[in-house]
Design a protein around this nucleic acid. Structure first.
Lengths: 238, 238
DNA sequence: AAACTTAGCGTATTAAATACGTTAAGTATT
DNA sequence: AATACTTAACGTATTTAATACGCTAAGTTT
């Protein structure tokens, strides 16, 4: 029999947000309570996550983490990959922190990664532990969390090609075509032609204008649009 | 602290094969060694799987299962979902079997599911424990394995829409357009127009004819084709 | 020789993607 | 008050892909 120990199972959430300019990721400072003079390493940022509790579905665990951190429920959340290499905890300070945090002699953790898309302004007033950082330009994070975010981003890139619906989770209810295009460009990592982009928007059939325009901008004010879920469903059926 | 127990972690492989007529799944009979008169329940078929060993990456565990079962290495294998509901083991006979098999007091198993695509004729002469069954018409399997296969099939359906390359893992090196179309139709679950299908094949640029035709068929013999990986890569770059 | 079966080419129509020119409506600058 | 500046928004022409459907070709079976 080759099985003796048993890896612990956790969930980690890559929570994306969009502030109109850049794509952000929500991170927490795991050493927030520790006085700065006691800190030796700068690796204090990590993805929000948790061990999976007894009698708790893994998806439920991810939902719980999201709720605890942002106060939000009914949020878009998608499992995208399991990170289960035995040397995920190879950095010594990661192992020390984990064992202190959980009060367990943990040797190995298999983590199930989720990504979530939320409107930044909806987050509850931050408690100081959480920060939004630019997803494209992150410092070194704890564990393999840089890698997890990168894979999450690649997954998101793929998804929006055939499920653009997910994108609207990141935008406010009313948004301009320019905002939508900026978001596409950020995630896809390339520039799009604005004129053709508008055409594909009007072709979509489910992005509809609302009776309101931008105000106080130093150029022609843009029309606001919204995502129509009912029209989206109709087009899918055909 | 809410964590006390710790779920066990396993991998399960949904191994798809194609015999020219229908899509098959490889299953194993977990009660193969047990004399029939001692069997109470007919739920003896399950997906090939294994607990994840210490110091073994989860992907490695899945590769190992595949190797042990089919003798094959360097096979297409893709993680697609984690099944982690606490009541996955709700059928009593499943729990009994699992505890006997592992000699452990297991209460809960979180399993990471993979799917794999192989050419049926490549499997080593079956050892009696393994069977290929029609993926679309399965009996009730152990655990939640019917559900796992269904989700795997849905994933495969989505994947082949933008990564048709995976399909060629299921076909022999030389295949006819009809075979390719049949495979598409099986996985997508709908009929396609043969004339338009041929057009999309020739448009693809990476399905090229070989210098050989069908023989001994009661109709016009079909041209054999092969998948050209180099041409596939060239087209992707554009 | 005729019937049968699947292979394989063609044509016409519609829809989607791409490239690029131009005008419109505001604010800021002089 | 006129001009410059900036982003919004519409249009046209071309290419490429998707869909619908007609027809011929090359074998075997009866």
């Amino acid at each position: 029999m080759n099985v003796r120990l048993n890896p612990h199972v956790s969930v980690d959430c890559v929570i994306f947000g969009f502030d109109g300019q850049s794509l952000k990721v929500l991170l927490i400072d795991r050493n927030y309570d520790i006085p700065p003079e006691k800190l030796t390493k700068p690796l204090t940022l990590k993805l929000p996550g948790s061990m999976v509790y007894d009698d708790e579905d893994v998806d439920t665990a991810a939902t719980r983490v999201l709720k605890e951190l942002t106060g939000l429920e009914n949020i878009f959340l998608k499992q995208f990959h399991v990170f289960g290499s035995p040397d995920r905890l190879k950095k010594e300070e990661d192992l020390i922190w984990l064992q202190a945090e959980t009060h367990m002699k943990i040797k190995r953790v298999v983590t199930i990664a989720y990504y979530s898309l939320i409107k930044i302004h909806k987050t509850t007033p931050s408690d100081g532990r959480v920060v939004w950082l630019d997803a494209m330009n992150l410092p070194e994070l704890a564990f393999d969390h840089n890698n997890i975010i990168q894979v999450g981003l690649q997954t998101l890139q793929k998804e929006i090609q055939h499920e653009p619906i997910e994108l609207f989770e990141l935008l406010p209810k009313k948004f301009t075509i320019r905002q939508l295009q900026t978001l596409y460009e950020l995630i896809l990592g390339k520039k799009l032609d604005n004129r053709n982009f508008r055409k594909s928007v009007s072709r979509s059939g489910y992005i509809v204008p609302v009776n309101e325009k931008e105000r106080n901008v130093a150029h022609k004010p843009a029309q606001y649009y919204r995502f129509s879920h009912s029209r989206y469903l109709k087009n899918q059926k055909l």
